[in-house]
Design a protein around this nucleic acid. Structure first.
Lengths: 341, 341
DNA sequence: AAATACGTTGCAAACGTTTGCTAAACTTCA
DNA sequence: TGAAGTTTAGCAAACGTTTGCAACGTATTT
């Protein structure tokens, strides 16, 4: 297909009988240039609807103005919100983003990295997959001199900027809240422990129990493989225990939704018989029955800050390693609202 | 920051004492070349971990292997699913995608188009914003010779490939289902009528009524501005009518969720007093109380096909205009399950 | 009037590739 | 042995920019 001939700097130069360098200088108002020539160039450029060829620019300047983003999955509302933040911040600075999904697979994540590096992105923002354990691919990015920023799911041992929420505190507070509502046997559905977040949330949960003089019962800790299919299974397992929980701290709101569903099907009442609290404050949580208490993580803000840090590093052109912790917020609703007896 | 010197075709040529053209030919196994030289080049390239510079390639070949995508918003599960389909199909063909959000704003959408055109994407896939009324920006894309494909929210008057679901049929079937369940006064929450989809869904709803000899009552049709805040408002308005509806066909599952919430708060029973059906079959719909009937639109598939058509057009290098209709599916759950009296 | 300075411009190289054309070297055939 | 043919390889231009350097013309200075 014939792309309607795009106008280049050459066309302008030819029409004006001057050299391309002059045109370039007029357009970029770089060096000294005769105001009159500049005027003429600008006018003609406007008239011809000249658009600089970004590829040529990239080649010349060795920068693409694209930042790569790798997230586990787009359909996860947390990440799609974060992308919003990244995009807004990036576009403010004249950058575009190229998003890849790892589908929670370490292998695909590795391919994503390759793809982005090959596309010569100016930097990479990533939230790692559940499977990710090796530092190698990330070290490779750093070694190539490509700025790298982690958000939410970080690899803590690497010296790069990181943005995350106060997972420990969030879990501590959520658990404490359940305890204050009178729960004493609180189950925790944990994510895979290779994730830094999961480890700290678990610790926050445990420390809250300890600080309230409650025992830590391993029986009440579920290590979820996170496939939605087994929520019903482990919920039933918990409820079938000789000494079942009177509170559940779910892995996220989707999990909590299904947990509540299972609990209700068994004829138990929420929050009277058992309290449930989620994580991430999903869209539907205000409308469930009962409405679901949750922890709100400012996803958009995490993404925005991640982009901010990345752009800072790109600009400064030297590695920084700033760690930012963004506060979360406990959202209290009916699933944990009960009168303490 | 010093990017560790990337190896280029020149480095290989120098080390081997041959010209860059030969190296290029060896790497692309293009023209005739001595198998021995080729072997040597390939080996050295491997050893040095040579990666072709995609920018230089783009400049030379005048193609970026990037396809641009514009959607209203990422946090909308429908669109994030669709992006999954686009991405999978694109990456199979060696393409990357660059995603922009219009935030349902015609103005931002226009900027997105500019951005993508300036980035010299090889094609654009778009689902237009709710505000979009003008064809102009899209005509501009076409005039530039950049392949353009619409999905889901299309502009029907433009001659480009389009992928959409059978909106008319879906709405017809959903409405008919309500009627078969004994509803005779069915409210419809419609999207803005400048959207092709909204118009056809409304028509499907109306035709279903007609074909069952039911009257069309304008009083029962809500034109939603789609801001989530007013759901409660219009639901109450409907229920306060002297002759209130006994069935509601919501604009989507999120709307349906809130409608159900409002209905229940007023002490009405679902589905006994009033049936509710949604659209898009969201994640939570299986777990609401009662579980929510809905129409499933195969978002991933829509996206996948859109990419397929776009890549076909890019490849063939001549405009095609194929319109694909992807079937939807009625998902029946408890919110409409009642014994006909 | 000559020398110097300055403002403005063009040349050409560079970024990393691909590719048409040409040339060298080698093979084949008469 | 010479002519013709066939591989194989290199040169150079091209893609659209930017930019260091040199050079031009004009203005300023002495």
């Amino acid at each position: 297909m014939l792309r309607s001939s795009t106008v280049t700097i050459k066309d302008i130069a030819k029409k004006l009988g001057i050299s391309t360098s002059t045109v370039s200088r007029a357009l970029t108002n770089h060096s000294d240039i005769n105001p009159k020539t500049k005027e003429a160039v600008l006018e003609l450029a406007q008239q011809l609807d000249y658009q600089p060829n970004s590829i040529a620019l990239s080649l010349r300047k060795k920068q693409t103005n694209i930042i790569g983003v790798i997230i586990p999955e787009m359909v996860n509302r947390f990440f799609s919100k974060a992308i919003g933040g990244i995009q807004d911040e990036a576009s403010k600075a004249g950058y575009n983003i190229m998003v890849c999904q790892s589908n929670e697979s370490q292998h695909i994540e590795y391919n994503n990295i390759q793809t982005l590096l090959n596309s010569l992105v100016d930097g990479i923002i990533i939230s790692v997959s559940k499977e990710t354990s090796s530092e190698r691919p990330f070290q490779k990015i750093i070694d190539k001199g490509v700025p790298l920023v982690f958000f939410d799911r970080v690899i803590d041992s690497l010296e790069t900027p990181k943005v995350m929420s106060d997972n420990y505190e969030a879990a501590f507070n959520a658990t404490s809240h359940l305890i204050e509502m009178g729960c004493s046997r609180i189950a925790r559905v944990s994510g895979p422990l290779n994730l830094y977040n999961s480890r700290w949330r678990l610790k926050g949960y445990q420390d809250a129990l300890i600080s309230h003089n409650l025992p830590i019962d391993e029986e009440l800790i579920i290590y979820s493989s996170h496939t939605a299919t087994n929520v019903r299974e482990y919920t039933n397992h918990l409820l079938d225990l000789p000494n079942p929980p009177d509170g559940i701290f779910a892995i996220n709101d989707q999990g909590a939704l299904e947990i509540m569903h299972t609990i209700k099907q068994r004829g138990l009442r929420i929050p009277e018989d058992i309290c449930v609290i989620g994580f991430n404050n999903d869209y539907f949580s205000a409308f469930t029955e009962p409405s679901l208490s949750s922890v709100e993580i400012p996803a958009y803000e995490l993404g925005r800050i991640a982009a901010e840090l990345l752009l800072k590093e790109v600009k400064v052109d030297s590695p920084i390693h700033e760690k930012r912790i963004v506060p979360s917020k406990l959202i209290l609703r009916d699933s944990t609202r009960r009168i303490k007896d």
